[in-house]
Design a protein around this nucleic acid. Sequence first.
DNA 1: CCTTTTATTATACATAGTGTTGATTTTTTA
DNA 2: TAAAAAATCAACACTATGTATAATAAAAGG
Lengths: 205, 205
Amino acid sequence: MNDNNSKNQALNKPIDKQKKVDRRVKRTKKLIRDSLSELMMEKDYKEITVKDITERADLNRGTFYLHYSDTYDLLEKVENELIDNLEDIIDNYDIKSKITSSFSIIDYVFEHFKENDKICRALFIKSPNNSYTEKLIKVIVDKGLEIKEALKVKYSEEELSYRFYFIACGLIGLIRKWFLEKDKISKEDFIKTTDKILLEYIKSI
Amino acid sequence: MNDNNSKNQALNKPIDKQKKVDRRVKRTKKLIRDSLSELMMEKDYKEITVKDITERADLNRGTFYLHYSDTYDLLEKVENELIDNLEDIIDNYDIKSKITSSFSIIDYVFEHFKENDKICRALFIKSPNNSYTEKLIKVIVDKGLEIKEALKVKYSEEELSYRFYFIACGLIGLIRKWFLEKDKISKEDFIKTTDKILLEYIKSI
DNA sequence: CCTTTTATTATACATAGTGTTGATTTTTTA
DNA sequence: TAAAAAATCAACACTATGTATAATAAAAGG
């Protein structure tokens, strides 16, 4: 919440106290994260151990605990980074003009997936307690509400938020379904169908 | 899949080999299940151990393994029983007439929750990998497709299934949201709002 | 009611993962 | 190049897992 704007992190901290991250830390975190991505493609999250992660990353098991308290802590931090990335993508588009013509939020979500393919796919499908999905939904709802006035709808903020929540869950559900059976339909066809559904709904609001 | 019709289980097995379930087994399974419900209200599923469950149920730890291979096996079996219960509820209503006037599937889902309050609530909110939610969605989509012709819509089966999936995810998402912040809005108000949203969408199909 | 069958208990066991610690080595920073 | 920081290594106590066996308790079925 207070560490968005990850691209201008200078704004968040006192200028003089800008922590330069040690190369080794960067390397270690990247190795752990990559290792996690791979493992999540191979087995259920609950079966992944710290030993699994560090062995594959060729790190000492103890090193893991220098950065994360356990595998769930790791997952949460990775998820939060990804959500920051999605918010950056959305903020870098002219969202107001686009979203009114069609609910093109779907494009941003796909852009986000494209930029973080492996880990996103894994998290999206397998994140425990659905935490990643929940965060995605929150971003969509919030960004929708931000352009409330541009939509010129008749509903109160509360009523509108229910509708956005409904749309967001439906959309994320469809994308998730598509991920699970990706061989059956091309991305283009999927987007076409989904856009149509969303449009129909947006019109009905 | 092949053990639906749980109310007429005589049909599934040879008549002569009808296994009467030992009282002790029934008791043990109920104790385990109740214990699980309680624990899931208190902490994350991943933190619940076999020892936790059996201690609270006042059973020997080994007894657990006579019935379930691990906690995830337990969860899956409980989920499947619940889904059977939901399907029974839906089948016992005159679904075709009801669903065409309004998408009253929401009533069935609530009925289902009412009948299995504690465990449903826990599973719904915390089931890992979202498996319970996914099963709920599948039931809604399947039941929707069953009355396809009654709806007299213009879409092909495939297109319709996408729309039902969208609705199901949206609906389940809303209910889930309501569960998480239940103090804020009464059940009646929630149903009223949700019904309105669903109706708007159904009309647009 | 009595016998047979079955479920549960008690106990022990090997295995594996967890999270922490302290001393040592390696790498980076400045 | 010296100081600081990070990663390694080995060891630790602890806890949960899943299995196995003999003993006990309870239910089923005649």
